[in-house]
């Protein structure tokens, strides 16, 4: 699982795990985020980046991220979160934010 594979992007190759999550959150760049978002059919806006930065900040603080916490962040409500990152918002946004896959059930 943890054998790094390399993600082919026009921006920069960054090591990701088998599921595509960035192995080292500090390597993250907005350009890389754009590239990953594009593979999900998402074009990142400022609102997206507000959420991504919030996720990165909270993850760095050691907070276990949940959809409920994102909804209470004051940046987006839960409905907007689902709209911004369709197809599983917490997983998709975490991948784009370059942080590990969330382990929450709620």
């Amino acid at each position: 699982m943890l054998n790094p594979i390399y993600m082919e992007t026009v921006v920069k190759q960054l090591p990701v795990n088998a599921e595509g999550y960035l192995l080292d959150a500090t390597l993250w760049t907005p350009e890389w985020a754009n590239e990953v978002a594009r593979s999900y059919g998402i074009t990142l806006t400022d609102k997206h980046f507000d959420v991504l930065n919030w996720l990165r900040k909270k993850q760095a603080e050691g907070v276990a991220l949940t959809i409920r916490k994102v909804g209470a962040s004051g940046i987006v409500d839960i409905k907007q979160f689902y709209e911004l990152f369709p197809g599983g918002p917490l997983k998709v946004s975490s991948k784009i934010a370059g942080i590990p896959k969330p382990v929450s059930c709620i």
């Binding site: 594979i5 390399y6 993600m7 082919e8 990701v16 088998a18 599921e19 595509g20 990953v36 593979s39 999900y40 197809g87 998709v92």
Partner: peptide, 12 residues
């Protein structure tokens, strides 16, 4: 037309 390694990083 894409590199094989990219497949793992993309959603199903």
């Amino acid at each position: 037309d894409k590199p094989v390694t990219l497949g793992n990083a993309l959603p199903a």
